[in-house]
Design a protein around this nucleic acid. Structure first.
Length: 1024
RNA sequence: GCGGAUGUGGUGAAAUUGGUAUACACGCUUGCCUUAGGAGCAAGUGCCGCAAGGCGUGAGAGUUCGAAUCUCUCCAUCCGCACCA
């Protein structure tokens, strides 16, 4: 046996060449062997090349794959390139090189770097997402989705990155900025292709439970990303329309009014087109041409002094005018007695009205609006005291009243000027303005003011909310700031006495009773808290006035039935509310128009909810909402449909042809792939058009349906398209008939083990699961979930603890490490650094340690004396075999390495070691350090590759210890260890222990209370 | 704020059906060998103490014969989400 020095350079290149020549890693379908498909997330071949962190996952899967191979599995372990995407394109733009060229160059670099590490990839299955033979099938999948209606065109505003000049999906944001370039993003309405991923939201969520071998952290991330919440959608009619109105002396008995309306003093002063108008609010569906309405003023807040102020006749509806006018403008004719009114206009104007005997005719138009809201707490509907829409909500323009117009516009501008970042993270202080309009709460007919505020997001739910400040912290904050009323309707059942923690400045009481169990809250109205305290939980608000389910009267012909929402009789079964009017109430509570149907129902619903726990109350109220056609049970997802268009060059062309006659038509499958054309100018235009739009000879084509002229879709797919299904193509990479052969797919699917970065938890892994489920639905694949087991790889940081980056100049290139210390040392070191999924800083001296370990193995070769040798290392060897096998399986690669180090340290101390022990050591080390072990294996005059050998099995008899160190404790503290037979009986052990001199010292003069014996481990003597 | 994870020597970290805390490696100290190297070998290395012994796994409490491990409260760090209604 040679005693030459360990020269990693010659060994590694020699074996890499040989393995390739021998096609050692060629994978074929072999029905006789069990299959194992182990996959790395394929890299994006960036111009910077690999740093030492990138291969960590590949090393681990390689170790796993090699062990599986040696254990008799047919292993599929492929590699490829995710090569479409913005960086390549940006690099190309900057350096004036076509992305095709730079991409190919980068791939070559990556491949050579990976090659030096000695991976067992079957390169005959290499794939590349930019290869037309590959993206043909990416386009094919898109077409199938298009056929099924899962790909659609939309014109909704989407996220736009002004720097990358392309639209983005919500997943492409990081902290509200473009994930690629860190730019502030904008919202931009544009035509785009969108994939209906939300159709799969429920399944993707539920099927997470079918993935026990996924890390829970990633499953949790996906759950959060899908963001399912259960609740209700509730319709709120928008009641507030303004129109100028004329009053008639109420003494005129000839006029019989149909409706009563409340009139608010602070609604009077309106300036519009330089003229002053009287406005008031009305439920539009309740009036029509010819109606006479009675005006009652109660706005001074004194409900006992309500007076009928006059009557108005509605004579004409002119919808034409709506076209040119703001929709909230309903009146036109000047109030003729304006001059008269003006002088005395103000808070009280009784005289003015009384003296005005002229009946004025006004035209007006009404339009019915309603806004749906989503809530998870329909049980708090009665606590809604105002309504909020997102500033960019399309309805805002229509409902804003004239007098609020400038304020609202100002605010929209203010809110729109904020970046996404400011709006979410930085803007802690809530802001908003009143629109002047009101929404009607369907459960009690109460009118609540509609505000706009940017704490309500257009992108979630319906972009509008009912605000329940007593039970929602954000609403509470807002209500406090703008003095909006707060009304508690739900209360916790008393259980534990706890002091309220929030708002100590407001909370003055003795402490309230909070039961931390959410399910125990009930609907109640028994408390009388003060305005201004939010409970901090969503359920409890102490010391505030309560009004629950205030029933509001229907409109009837009978005047005595007209009631306001602050002088109602309490509904049966409810405590009378102790309503104290505040200035706020005056401001907002006015003008209740009253949906007819609700009164009786209200009574019932109020009664039936009282005392219920939240869960049941929610169910009840939803039932009621559904019965009355004002709402329904609903599930809302945070997940948005996948914005699938990119206005960039370097991506898969979307295979659609636009025809004036036929609309968007899919490219026939026989014409796939739609190849990305060669183009002179591939810079993004920034106008929302892809650079492909500048190639008329490519764009102009014929419609496959009618044969007329058509234009190609010029948007390309996002980077995540190819990676959403690439793992299937490895199974059958050269097939030009189908995406993947059914039989082969049946054999290899699913991916048994998938390893990659945690950063893909909510993008690639969501998209791939979505596509896979779709492919399952159309019968292309056999399993509903693509990846059976998933582990994420921890980052390797630079030695300074920062991320490796050109910017910091701390990047370590694997080529240099391989050159200096060898691929094997690097492989072993990266596994030895720490737990696989944990991030860890690189340490070159640590690497030197593993290099020394390999040198020790190289060194002990000289001690190998004979084929068979009685060895006292057999016990340790078999223990190590067991541990290494178990640890690789568990991906505890760091402790597998340390176990082998312990064995080698022990062997080093021996004078001679048997070849059997040494060979088995090489076998279990070979997945970690393939080159050196293959070399040493050969030196032991083995002809066949070490990787064609069987994985060694441990002998259970040999791992049993004959003697153990029996631990002796006194009262749980270690006092002695005694060597005894491993299978010592309880009685013998006790006897030995009590005879020990050391132990006698501790037990002397004390009473032995009991002796605990743990077989094969310890004896604990309890003394007193 | 919500969700998840983590917290052990000078450093990376072992140890989890509760049973000798700090395996393995780095670093450091001393010595040897060569001699000026980031090489090799040997010994040592949690803290206090001469010792006996005591203390020690983020902090505090609890359960237990016995807790790094289980329970509760709190603190810190990291990751993800974030005004999600």
């Amino acid at each position: 046996m040679s005693n030459k020095k360990y020269n990693h350079k010659s060994i590694e290149s020699k074996w890499q060449k040989k393995w390739e020549e021998d096609k050692l890693y060629k994978t074929c379908e072999n029905k006789k062997k069990p299959k194992y498909y182990i996959l790395d997330m394929f890299p994006y071949p960036s111009g910077a090349g690999l740093h030492v962190g990138h291969p960590k996952g590949y090393i681990a899967t390689d170790i796993f794959a090699r062990m599986k191979m040696m254990q008799g599995y047919n292993v599929l372990h492929p590699m490829g390139w995710d090569a479409f995407g913005l960086p390549a394109e940006n690099f190309a733009l900057k350096n004036k090189i076509h992305p095709r060229i730079s991409t190919d160059k980068n791939i070559a670099t990556f491949k050579s770097q990976l090659g030096k590490l000695g991976f067992s990839y079957d390169w005959e299955r290499e794939i590349n997402t930019t290869d037309p033979e590959f993206y043909k099938w990416t386009q094919w999948i898109f077409l199938q989705m298009f056929k099924k209606g899962l790909a659609y065109e939309s014109h909704e505003p989407i996220i736009w990155c002004p720097s990358c000049k392309t639209g983005l999906a919500q997943e492409d944001l990081e902290n509200g900025k473009c994930e690629r370039c860190d730019s502030e993003v904008e919202r931009k309405p544009m035509r785009q292709w969108v994939l209906r991923i939300t159709d799969y939201a429920e399944r993707m969520l539920n099927d997470l439970d079918k993935l026990p071998e996924w890390e829970s952290s990633i499953k949790e991330m996906q759950k959060g990303w899908i963001g399912r919440s259960e609740g209700a959608i509730v319709k709120f009619p928008i009641s507030n329309f303004q129109f100028p109105i004329n009053f008639q002396n109420s003494n005129d008995k000839n006029l019989k009014s149909k409706n009563y309306f409340k009139f608010r003093s602070n609604s009077i002063e309106k300036i519009y087109s330089g003229q002053k108008w009287v406005t008031f609010r009305i439920e539009p569906k309740d009036v029509k041409k010819g109606d006479i309405v009675t005006i009652i003023d109660w706005a001074d807040g004194d409900k006992k002094n309500q007076k009928e102020k006059g009557k108005a006749i509605i004579t004409k509806v002119d919808k034409k005018r709506l076209k040119d006018l703001p929709l909230n403008y309903f009146g036109h004719e000047k109030y003729t007695t304006y001059e008269k009114m003006k002088s005395e206009f103000g808070k009280y104007y009784d005289e003015e009205i009384k003296n005005d005997s002229i009946v004025h005719i006004y035209e007006f138009a009404v339009e019915n609006f309603e806004q749906k809201i989503f809530t998870t707490r329909p049980d708090t509907l009665f606590g809604a005291t105002y309504f909020v829409m997102a500033p960019e909500h399309p309805l805002v323009k229509k409902i804003t009243t004239q007098e609020q117009k400038s304020e609202v516009e100002k605010y929209i501008k203010f809110a729109g000027g904020k970046s996404e970042l400011e709006r979410t993270e930085l803007a802690k202080e809530k802001t908003g303005v009143f629109t002047g309009s009101y929404a009607v709460n369907p459960v009690n007919g109460e009118e609540i003011p509609i505000w706009i505020a940017d704490y309500v997001m257009m992108g979630y739910g319906t972009g509008a909310i009912m605000a329940v400040p007593a039970h929602d912290e954000r609403d509470f904050e807002f209500a406090k700031k703008y003095n909006l009323p707060i009304r508690q309707v739900v209360q916790k059942i008393n259980d534990k006495q706890t002091t309220i923690k929030n708002n100590p400045e407001v909370f003055t009481g003795e402490g309230i009773n909070i039961n931390s169990d959410f399910s125990d809250e009930i609907l109640s109205n028994t408390k009388t808290p003060e305005i201004g305290a939010f409970d901090g939980s969503e359920d409890c608000c102490p010391r505030r006035e309560i009004q629950i389910c205030q029933p509001v009267n229907s409109i009837t012909d009978n005047k005595k039935d007209v009631k306001r929402n602050n002088d109602v009789e309490p509904t049966e079964g409810l405590e009378p509310s102790n309503h104290r009017l505040t200035n706020l109430d005056l401001h907002h509570a006015a003008g209740t128009s009253t949906p007819n149907l609700l009164y009786q129902e209200n009574k019932d619903i109020t009664k039936s909810l009282n005392g219920l726990k939240t869960k049941q109350a929610k169910e009840k109220i939803i039932e009621w909402l559904e019965k009355n056609g004002v709402g329904k049970k609903a599930i809302n997802y945070k997940l948005k449909d996948w914005v699938f268009s990119r206005q960039r060059y370097w991506g898969e062309p979307i295979p659609i042809i636009h025809c004036e006659k036929c609309g968007a038509v899919g490219v026939p499958e026989k014409d796939l792939p739609v190849k990305l054309p060669e183009v002179e100018q591939y810079a993004p235009s920034g106008t929302g058009e892809s650079p492909l739009a500048t190639i008329p000879e490519w764009v102009n084509t014929t419609c496959p349906k009618c044969g007329g002229s058509g234009k190609r879709e010029t948007n390309t797919m996002p980077q995540w398209a190819g990676s959403s299904w690439y793992y299937l193509r490895y199974i059958d990479p050269k097939n030009d008939k189908v995406l993947v052969d059914k039989k082969k797919e049946e054999y290899w699917s699913p991916v048994d083990f998938y390893v990659g970065g945690a950063e893909h938890a909510t993008r690639h892994l969501i998209y791939a699961r979505f596509w896979h489920k779709f492919l399952y639905d159309i019968g292309v694949v056999n399993y509903e979930e693509p990846f059976k087991k998933l582990r994420h790889v921890g980052l390797i940081m630079a030695e300074d603890g920062r991320k490796m980056s050109k910017r910091w100049g701390n990047v370590i290139n694997p080529d240099d490490i391989v050159e200096k210390y060898g691929a094997d040392a690097m492989r072993v070191y990266e596994m030895f650094m720490g737990p696989f999924s944990q991030s860890c800083a690189w340490s070159t001296s640590g690497l030197v340690g593993t290099r020394k370990f390999l040198e020790k193995i190289w060194g002990v070769k000289l001690k190998v004396k004979s084929k068979k040798l009685e060895s006292n290392n057999l016990n340790m060897l078999h223990k190590t075999i067991k541990k290494v096998g178990d640890d690789i399986k568990e991906f505890k690669l760091n402790t597998a390495v340390s176990a082998m180090m312990i064995l080698v340290n022990a062997l080093e101390k021996e004078k001679e070691i048997s070849q059997e022990v040494y060979e088995k050591l090489l076998l279990i080390l070979s997945p970690f350090a393939p080159h050196i072990t293959e070399e040493l294996w050969g030196e032991l005059s083995n002809k066949e590759s070490i990787f064609k050998q069987k994985w060694p099995e441990y002998n259970p008899k040999l791992i049993k210890d004959e003697k153990i160190q029996l631990v002796v404790q006194i009262n749980g503290k270690l006092r002695d260890t005694i060597e005894v037979d491993a299978d010592i009986s309880e009685n013998d052990a006790k006897k030995v222990v009590l005879e020990s001199e050391k132990i006698k010292k501790w037990t002397e003069g004390k009473k032995i209370i009991k002796i605990i014996f743990v077989k094969g481990k310890l004896v604990n003597v309890v003394v007193k």
